[in-house]
């Protein structure tokens, strides 16, 4: 099912960068970066500080000059008019501190091409939804940082964008707001909007994203669905027995990653990862040996958390 879905969607690449490059003086901050964001998918953009995520996003939005490569929208070079319909949330938040919340949102909506009336209606509805209806007349600087963040998000989705580029949209939000934000993004992906967002919160990316792109030192080091990324790693199994599991080190065809008391973490050594849900022959042999020697409490595949995959590829 999962595979089918991702195949079906892979035809609808909406927003794409092709060999995108940007230098700052002698430093190449973004080096031939190619990523694709598909219709109706949440694509997580992950990487350490200085990996080039923000620079890439700024080039996608046209606020930073491109030194090489291109950005395409629906298969052709992106235009200013296209970008005007993108929702954008910059890394360093951008709002007028001394202007009222609602007035400011209406202004941003108008800049994105909405009529004043439509912008006001949309902004008021979203403020209500984020519990900020009673703050509509306040100046932005009087709001807490979390609430300013909510206003920023509203600014990005106000004009029913055709695509979204969000730089760290979840940072600074409490868990309730994270859920509200995730719901909001899902609503937009449901109507086919491609969303690219960067985040340092890997568990969140794991939970929300259909796909992810990992950048390190200006390059893309991994990209795909989370399952595809995991598939690139040898599957690991955990065996738990009642006694000591030290004997597993002597079983042929199995590489023992770690033993701790009765728990052993192992990989099949013969390079045969087995098909989905199927266990390699050498692992079957290991299990038979365990049953013969001891009481088996647990045997099963270990799904590595995203943070572990990330550490592996970004290292």
């Amino acid at each position: 099912m999962i595979r089918l879905r991702s195949v079906a969607r892979s035809v609808a690449v909406m927003l794409e960068t092709i060999d995108l490059t940007r230098r700052f003086g002698p430093v190449t901050a973004v080096d031939k970066v190619s990523i694709s964001v598909r219709s109706g998918e949440l694509t997580g953009f992950v990487g350490g500080n200085g990996a080039g995520k923000t620079t890439t996003m700024r080039m996608v939005m046209g606020v930073l000059g491109i030194h090489g490569g291109r950005v395409t929208w629906q298969g052709r070079d992106v235009t200013a008019a296209d970008r005007r319909r993108f929702g954008y949330m910059p890394e360093e938040r951008g709002l007028y501190p001394k202007q009222g919340v609602l007035d400011q949102l209406v202004y941003l909506g108008q800049l994105a091409g909405m009529s004043a009336v439509a912008a006001r209606r949309s902004a008021a509805g979203l403020l209500d939804r984020f519990g900020l209806a009673d703050r509509a007349r306040d100046k932005v600087e009087k709001l807490s940082l979390g609430n300013q963040q909510r206003v920023q998000i509203i600014g990005a989705v106000l004009a029913d964008p055709v695509a979204m580029v969000l730089d760290e949209p979840f940072s600074g939000l409490d868990p309730t707001a994270v859920d509200a934000m995730a719901d909001l993004l899902r609503e937009h992906t449901r109507r086919g909007v491609p969303v690219l967002f960067s985040s340092h919160q890997l568990d969140l990316v794991d939970r929300l994203c259909d796909r992810l792109v990992i950048m390190a030192r200006g390059r893309v080091v991994a990209a795909g669905t989370v399952d595809e990324l995991r598939a690139g790693f040898p599957p690991r199994h955990r065996l738990v027995v009642a006694g000591d599991a030290g004997w597993t080190r002597d079983v042929r065809g199995v590489h023992v990653v770690d033993v701790d008391g009765g728990t052993a973490l192992v990989e099949a050594e013969d390079g045969d990862p087995g098909a989905d849900g199927q266990v390699a022959a050498s692992l079957q042999a290991l299990l038979r040996e365990a049953v013969r020697r001891d009481t088996v409490l647990e045997f099963g595949p270990v799904v590595p958390p995203l943070s572990e995959l990330y550490r592996e590829v970004a290292a």
Partner: peptide
């Protein structure tokens, strides 16, 4: 940085 949003519109 509001200029980033404006410049993208």
């Amino acid at each position: 940085r509001v200029v980033e949003i404006i410049a993208s519109s």
